[in-house]
Amino acid sequence: MSDPDGAVRSAADQRRLVRERYAGIAAEGSGGGCCADGCECGCDSSSADEQSRAVGYDDEALDSVVEGANLGLGCGNPTAIANLNAGETVLDLGSGAGFDCFLAAQAVGPTGRVLGVDMTPEMVEKARENARRNDAETVEFRLGEIEHLPVADEAVDVVVSNCVVNLSPDKERVFAEAFRVLRPGGRVAISDVVQTAPFPDDVREDPEALAACVSGAATVADLEEMLDTVGFEAVAIAPKDESASFIREWNDSRDLSEFLVSSAIEARKPRR
């Protein structure tokens, strides 16, 4: 990633930009904070619930979680593709205010467990408060980077994530960490944006576009290669053509659906 002046942006700089952006969103208390400087990360002037309906959540899911947990920042519904079962342990990469974690907890029941990892202290604090308000006793939130997960080896059954992996400067490392923490036979179920065409220079070099779930997106071919390299099998990446209807609303001055599509990313760790 480069600055507009051509300087290469370090991984640390990228993480700082993302952390600062989402700390601001946590302070705002809703997806409205995401829209404050350009509507480039999946939210617009509509409510967080309206945005979430557009990406695949139903009213039952939205009504089942305490107010403030859903910030309207997703680009899909990973819990819907994860096929969660009672008693499973689920890990959410970039768990934000906890929305998907609370939905996962409902699916895995009282014998299951859900871990959320987020690198933004303000988000982790907000998620922990939401867990208390939601009486989510089987949900735990940890501060950490998704490239260096604070989770033991082979500790979880399912890894989910919602429009977060694109923000990482080292996506292959993210997938390697997911592989490490999954039990044999475990699976990933990720909703994220993928790149379908080269970004114009003004998008590629815009730091706001990086922090806003745009210019950090990888292509399907690159994601497939990364997942295969770290050891996953049954890799399947399914673009959601209908996502153009909400992606084109992300920016008032440019139709980002020319370069991005939301996709379901699935893979499995081989059994021994």
Results as ranks from 00 to 15, higher is better:
I247V: 13
N166A: 13
E225C: 07
Q195C: 11
D157L: 06
I81S: 06
G6N: 02
D49S: 15
T229M: 02
C43L: 01
R272M: 10
E122Q: 11
E145H: 15
R16I: 05
V139N: 06
R187G: 04
R254A: 02
L115M: 13
A107D: 14
T229W: 11
A12F: 08
S191A: 15
S46P: 02
S2T: 09
R272S: 14
L17E: 15
T196M: 09
N83M: 09
S46I: 13
G96Y: 01
D59W: 12
D118Y: 06
N83V: 00
N85M: 13
A176Y: 07
R183I: 13
A155S: 15
L167I: 12
V181T: 07
F102Y: 09
P78D: 00
F259Q: 13
G42W: 08
E50F: 06
D49H: 14
S262W: 01
A26H: 12
I25Q: 07
G24Y: 04
D3Y: 15
A176K: 06
C213M: 05
F99Y: 12
S253K: 03
S46A: 12
A218Q: 12
V151F: 03
A61T: 10
S263I: 06
L93H: 03
L91S: 08
R183W: 03
T120R: 07
E224M: 06
S30L: 04
V90W: 00
A238Y: 03
F102W: 04
V65N: 03
D58S: 08
R19V: 14
G6P: 02
E233K: 01
R254S: 09
